[in-house]
């Protein structure tokens, strides 16, 4: 697609569509975000810092970003396997499983949270076997990871599927016929093609997890300093009618997320260009 823009930057409708895109993004993203920053800027720097670096706030960043990272990593590994299986093999019930992947998108998050809490509680279908072994999932930090893993799964799978579909089996066959071992084929041929999409999927799942409130709240246990996520502290501020304080925490989250996304995007760019130098990859991007 991108190559189309190369020789003919003035494709018909360029200005109109760019205008639409900018307006749309401004209304939906830029305006609320600048409102947020504007509201938070009512605080003095000292007051802002006090809210942003409070003991509870710091603990909640650790919980939120730690659990999100872990959940996104789990999803990256298992999402890759799911996507691979769904694209490369055919088996009975494949369409059903394919549809199941989207379920976390559609399910109201509160429903997901309550269901997961019931499953992983001490008397739940799963919790009853894990708790005697010493694994406390529901109402403890691992519960947060479980909820975030659930909501993040479709992002990785749906990002990877089209990319895997684009990798022709012939490419692997060619590698094999040129004498590459299976491991070499994976590391040198498949991995470079998958990496950018894998990073995108990771990023999407990660950013979705950071802001998640509805499902986590029912499984976390919400103990101060242990299992409080930052969105809960924001709600707590709102409960005190402290809108400005709430926006201060939101701005901190936004900033940390932005930095992390920036780093991941940088990695992605690096991965794409490094392998983009090789001819095969350009087509896949």
């Amino acid at each position: 697609m991108r190559s189309l823009f190369g020789p003919r930057p003035l494709l018909p409708g360029f200005r109109l569509s760019l205008g639409c895109a900018v307006l749309y993004l401004s209304l939906l993203v830029l305006l609320p975000l600048s409102g947020l920053v504007f509201k938070a800027s009512q605080l003095s720097l000292a007051a802002f810092w006090e809210i942003a670096s409070g003991e509870r706030a710091l603990a909640s960043y650790r919980v939120t970003f730690g659990a999100s990272l872990l959940a996104a990593s789990i999803n990256t590994v298992f999402g890759l396997i799911v996507a691979w299986v769904l694209v490369r093999y055919s088996f009975p019930g494949k369409r059903l499983i394919d549809a199941l992947v989207d379920l976390p998108f559609a399910l109201p998050t509160a429903v997901a949270g309550i269901t997961l809490a019931t499953l992983y509680a001490g008397n739940g279908w799963i919790g009853r076997y894990l708790e005697p072994l010493g694994f406390k999932i529901a109402f403890a930090p691992p519960g947060i990871v479980v909820a975030l893993t659930f909501i993040g799964l479709p992002f990785v799978v749906r990002t990877l599927q089209p990319v895997i579909e684009d990798i022709e089996p012939e490419v692997e066959e060619a590698a094999a016929s040129l004498g590459a071992s299976r491991l070499q084929t994976f590391v040198r041929v498949l991995w470079p093609a998958l990496l950018p999409a894998l990073l995108t999927g990771f990023t999407l799942a990660f950013s979705r997890s950071i802001g998640e409130y509805g499902s986590v709240i029912f499984i976390a246990g919400n103990m101060p300093l242990i299992s409080e996520i930052t969105p809960l502290l924001i709600i707590s501020k709102l409960e005190q009618y402290d809108v400005v304080g709430a926006t201060a925490l939101a701005v901190v989250m936004l900033f940390i997320s932005f930095v992390m996304l920036f780093v991941v995007n940088g990695l992605q760019w690096w991965a794409a260009t490094r392998h983009g130098a090789r001819a095969a990859d350009g087509a896949l991007r």
Binding site: A117, N123, F139, F218, G221, N222, M223
Partner: peptide, 19 residues
Amino acid sequence: PLFAAGGRDATTTFMQRRI
């Protein structure tokens, strides 16, 4: 052992999950 998200959630935790 936990702080429930709301009144009804506390009830579910106590009655249904038997915590």
